[in-house]
């Protein structure tokens, strides 16, 4: 470089320089600090679809919880059928969702009562499945080695079995009928997918510096898994579990519809649809329409909410 032009001022000592800089001690930039969950809630609130989804889903949950008490008809009181209208009656003021064929029951009552078990099985199976998946995936990803190998081979096999077939056979095998059994079966078949996800998360988080730091400080394995790694793996698990509620609700309805699910006398959306099948050729569209719409609305709500959660919890994962 060329010679510097002679400056007109004397050179400053470092102390003097510092004095100049200290003239404005207040110019540190303030940074707003929000926790991960506060940030996520902020983003979730801004996600219009997610809010719509949450309203749909929790609205349906409210219907399931309180609806049966508010309806004029009791589910267990079976009306005397009127032989002249064997196919049932279309929606009217007294029966806004119409009446079924055969026993001429109020479709609204069936749909509202069906919501309970359908939602319970969907949510319950997903929570149990996500918990098992998180534990298995966490153990496999954290410890690695032969444990990882063994667990992942089991997962491979579980994932390559045709799911619906096994559910059909197992629900037949175990007698079928009770809702918690069906819930348990769906839980058993929803964990392998989540455990793969959790394993890959743990594999990458295990190498993070803060985990090494914890280990160097003598923190035990269990505490590292639950205090240091799991909170950072939580977001994808929550999203996967939410979306799995939707798929369980649809599969449960289909299994019940085929007659392999919850006992046919108990109300679930799948059972109501299943019963309607004998009458569909007479054109009473209101019978299958409303339980199906209930499924669509619930599942749509969950999918909206799941995508909103994904964007809110893990903004980097967007498309």
């Amino acid at each position: 470089m060329t010679e510097i032009e002679t400056p007109r001022v004397k050179e400053l000592t470092p102390a003097e320089l510092e004095a100049i800089q200290l003239e404005r001690p207040d110019f540190e930039v303030k940074l707003e600090s929000l926790s991960q969950w506060q940030l996520a809630w902020r983003r979730f609130k801004k996600h219009r679809l997610a809010i719509v989804g949450a309203v749909l889903f929790f609205g349906m949950c409210a219907v399931a919880a309180f609806g049966p008490f508010l309806l004029p008809y009791n589910f267990y009181t079976i009306p005397t059928p009127d032989k002249f209208v064997y196919a049932g009656r279309p929606p009217s003021l007294a029966h806004p969702f119409g009446e079924t064929g055969g026993l001429q029951r109020d479709v609204l009552t069936l749909v509202v009562n069906g919501a309970r078990l359908s939602l319970l099985i969907g949510v319950g199976a997903s929570i149990v499945g996500a918990t098992i998946g998180a534990i298995v995936g966490g153990v496999a990803g954290y410890f690695g080695g032969w444990i990882d190998n063994l667990l992942m081979r089991i997962v491979d096999i579980m994932l390559s079995l045709p799911l619906l077939f096994v559910i059909l056979v197992v629900s037949k095998f175990l007698g079928g009928g009770s809702w918690y059994l069906i819930m348990f079966i769906f839980a058993i078949f929803s964990w392998p997918g989540i455990s793969r996800l959790v394993r890959s998360l743990f594999l990458s988080l295990r190498g993070e510096d803060y985990v090494d730091a914890a280990r160097a400080a003598g923190v035990g394995d269990v505490r590292i898994i639950f205090r240091h790694i799991l909170p950072n793996a939580m977001s994808p698990i929550i999203v996967a579990a939410t979306l799995s509620v939707a798929s369980v609700i649809i599969s449960e309805a289909f299994v019940s519809f085929l007659g392999f699910g919850v006992d046919v006398t108990t109300p679930t959306w799948g059972n109501v649809l299943s019963n309607s099948l004998n009458f569909i050729t007479v054109g009473n569209w209101w019978w299958p329409l409303f339980p199906g719409l209930a499924i669509v609305v619930t599942v749509l709500g969950i999918n909206f909410m799941g995508d909103g959660l994904r964007d809110a919890l893990d903004p980097r994962a967007r498309e």
Partner: peptide
């Protein structure tokens, strides 16, 4: 300006010399 120019000269000295 004087205070600034003093700092600027110091900064350039630090790199060039």
């Amino acid at each position: 300006r004087g205070a600034y120019e003093a700092a600027a000269v110091a900064a350039v000295r630090g790199v060039v010399a």
